[in-house]
């Protein structure tokens, strides 16, 4: 698949959208799975979707700094109200998937979504 839109991505992982005014036509360039925010900041390329098990507001800030298109919370996690509020304020879409990290990443990768994780040798 050359192009994946948020709408298709959400279908692939049985996702539930948690924020308002999500542009379902946004293109997703790749994926990144991490629970370490520094890893995200260090490795993710712009335009990626971030799959994570962390639900605090810092995830939204991290996504914003790293130009992440949307955040997917794995294992059906529901982030606290302050995370959703910040995401709505900053326009970062939040999605929850019932699948665990491995399966969620696997489903997307199998559907053709490439990895957005850069090797450590490259600069952000």
């Amino acid at each position: 698949m050359l192009l994946m839109r948020l709408l298709e991505l959400i279908k692939l992982i049985d996702g539930e959208v948690l924020t308002e005014d999500v542009e379902m036509d946004s293109e997703v360039d790749g994926g990144c799975g991490a629970d370490l925010m520094s890893d995200v900041l260090a490795s993710v390329q712009p335009g990626a979707i971030l799959l994570t098990g962390l639900c605090n507001p810092q995830v939204v800030r991290t996504a914003q700094m790293a130009d992440v298109t949307a955040i997917v919370f794995v294992r059906g996690k529901q982030p606290p109200e302050e995370t959703i509020a910040l995401a709505n304020q900053e326009g970062v879409p939040l999605i929850s998937t019932p699948y665990g990290m491995f399966e969620a990443c696997g489903r997307l990768y199998q559907a053709g979504l490439p990895s957005s994780e850069m090797p450590m040798s490259e600069k952000p």
């Binding site: 370490l36 925010m37 520094s38 890893d39 260090a42 994570t52 810092q58 952000p124």
Partner: peptide, 16 residues
């Protein structure tokens, strides 16, 4: 637990 404190911060800054 917040996803920080892995000792990568300064290293990340250096790369940026």
């Amino acid at each position: 637990e917040l996803g920080f404190g892995a000792g990568m911060g300064l290293r990340n800054i250096q790369r940026c």
